[in-house]
Amino acid sequence: MKPIITAAELASALAGPRPPVLLDIRWQLGGPHGRPAYEAGHLPGAVFVDLDAELASPPGAGGRHPLPEPEAFGAVMRRAGVSADSSVVVYDGGQGWAAARAWWLLRWTGHADVRVLDGGLAAWTGPLESEIPVPAEGTFAPAPGALPLLDADGAAAQARAGLLLDARAAERYRGDVEPIDRVAGHIPGAVSAPTTENVDKEGRFLPAEALAARFFERGASEATETVGVYCGSGVSAAHEALALEIAGFTPALYAGSWSQWSSTDSRPVATGSQPG
């Protein structure tokens, strides 16, 4: 199953005998809360999920967006109507980062039947509704470990012996600027691969062949299976993980990302445009 779905495919699925569970994950880093926009209009039947409160634990030693506890995440998904046999489609306002975070969490906790609406809400041409649905309680039971997860030591090892991609903007990778975290730069050995280059001007993912070629340019090969990825706090990296899966690779997410890595002086920091 492809991890993304077009708006036309989604419209067809919603008209079918077993429509998918829809999750609205509208969120912007430092922007307004997504709930008011959801209440003003969302895909029919979609349930709002709060990224900061429900798809992450409170900031701390694990970074700015640590993974939620699996049982807490499971409870959120059950309240949204997700069951073991549910088909799930997630979307956000168009950037794709937040939807990809929900996609990755569902995949990591063992739910294979989940897709991201390609292009997000902007790609949807069907009706919207303002009624807030109250779905029946689902039966989803999280089983973490279905996708590889990296900690700081694992990310360092991936950079040394494999391929670790930095999904942040190139200027943050180089260490030219750092608008959020305490130290500028990147994990030594990581390779710059900004998330924004995974999509076209409409925010839709590039074809699988183009994505694969992009990752080959960054050091992947036909023999590469697992590719590590991190970003600032583990959100946009999930979008790159989605791109890696489309391209045929297995993504390994360093969820703590740069916000965790840079939080202590004991970890090395590299700067410049080349891995180091």
Rank of each mutant, 00 (worst) to 15 (best):
P133T: 00
P135Y: 12
A146Q: 11
V134I: 12
G145Y: 00
W124S: 06
A141P: 05
P148A: 02
L149N: 02
P144Q: 04
L149G: 05
A146T: 09
A136I: 12
P133E: 00
G145F: 01
S130P: 01
E131M: 09
P148Q: 03
G145L: 06
T125A: 13
P135D: 06
D151I: 08
V134A: 15
G145C: 01
F140W: 11
P148Y: 09
W124P: 08
A143N: 10
G145K: 05
D151A: 12
E129C: 10
V134H: 14
E137I: 14
G138D: 11
G126A: 04
L149E: 07
A146D: 07
G145E: 00
T125D: 14
V134G: 07
P127S: 10
L149H: 08
G145P: 00
P135I: 06
F140M: 03
A146H: 10
A136H: 12
G126P: 01
P127H: 05
A146R: 07
L147T: 08
P133L: 00
F140H: 14
A141G: 11
P133N: 03
T139L: 11
T139N: 12
E137S: 14
E137D: 11
A141Q: 14
P142K: 03
L147Y: 09
E129L: 02
V134N: 12
A141I: 12
A152C: 04
P144W: 03
T125L: 08
A143M: 11
L147F: 11
G126S: 02
L149P: 02
P127G: 03
L147D: 09
E131K: 09
T139D: 15
G145I: 00
A141D: 14
L149C: 07
W124N: 06
E131T: 14
A143P: 04
D151M: 10
D151C: 05
P127R: 07
F140K: 08
A123T: 08
G138I: 08
